[in-house]
Design a binder for these strands. Structure first.
Length: 273
DNA sequence: CACCACCCCTGGACGC
DNA sequence: TGCGTCCAGGGGTGGT
């Protein structure tokens, strides 16, 4: 399940594609495009464009073409971007779109569960205004004050607030549990009742947990693979996520497993206050 | 505004 | 081995 670190790793892995020309686009499932362009808007998926850049905000990835047009990729639960050189022996299933880049090189969007999808914009300015404006600042470089402002006066559970992308963008279920564990804050605490010191600590924890996961190459869990097919390596860093019933690494108390905001949640009932 | 139920979808884990 | 069942979850919607 790609969260911010996985998407950032994917982005970095795709950077070598900058400067390549999109010779054609094979859209195999139209319904994965959230806002299909008018039929005449040829090139909306960047056919004919030179790839100019890859940008990320939270968990979303934007591929920008030389025309200025942008394809936004939302990976959802099981989405992958795969770079292929030459014809692979067995093409993967559930590939919904392929950008053909010449010299046998191609970029494929694969998403078995189809919780993800593509959306199309005329420019980076447009995607920022129409799509990314609803998101909070990117979690990797947000300021504590951003989180504090979102918490102020809020009666929501703090984990709920982290999972919604409006406060800060990019934290999903895994890193929410990890960040709250590191900051010793109970996921069910009301956001508005955290002290400023706790908010500062949580903000720091979010940044540290995400940065560490990026360094480790993203989390390896179920569906995540890097564009080159390799696996990530942050799974071993998990101290709370998925460890319900196991002893806390700090105090040995068995971690508790509950549900917060319809999401499985693990925390230490002893050292997360 | 908070929060809940539910939906989308499929693969992997697990039980028999 | 092969089937059924449950579960995972990002994001959105619609109701209370």
């Amino acid at each position: 399940m790609p969260e911010l670190p996985e998407v950032e790793c994917i982005r970095r892995a795709l950077l070598p594609l900058i400067g390549r020309c999109v010779e054609s686009v094979d859209l195999r499932r139209r319904d994965i495009v959230e806002n299909p362009p008018a039929r005449r808007a040829a090139g909306a998926l960047l056919a004919g464009d030179v790839i100019r850049g890859f940008h990320r905000h939270g968990k979303q990835l934007a591929m920008e073409g030389g025309s200025g047009r942008v394809v936004c990729v939302q990976l959802g639960m099981s989405g992958q971007l795969l770079v292929r050189e030459g014809a692979a022996p067995k093409p993967p299933s559930h590939v919904h779109a392929v950008w053909v880049l010449g010299d046998g090189l191609s970029l494929a969007f694969r998403d078995p569960r189809r919780f993800g999808g593509l959306s199309l914009y005329g420019s980076m300015q447009e995607i920022r205004a129409e799509r990314w404006a609803a998101l909070g600042p990117d979690a990797l470089d947000h300021r504590a004050e951003d989180l504090a402002a979102a918490c102020r006066g809020s009666g929501r559970k703090i984990k709920d607030l982290l999972l919604g992308q409006g406060a800060i963008a990019g934290v999903g279920n895994i890193y929410a549990d990890e960040s709250l564990f590191l900051a010793r804050v109970r996921p069910t605490r009301r956001a508005g009742r955290l002290t400023r010191a706790e908010v500062d600590g949580l903000s720091e924890a979010v940044r540290r947990v995400l940065a560490r996961a990026v360094e480790a190459g993203g989390t390896t869990l179920r569906d995540y693979v890097r564009p080159d097919g390799g696996l990530g390596g942050a799974g071993a860093l998990h101290l709370a996520y998925g460890r319900g019933g196991e002893p806390c690494v700090r105090c040995s108390t068995p971690l508790r497993r509950t549900t917060v905001g319809q999401r499985t949640t693990c925390y230490c009932p002893s050292c997360q206050v």
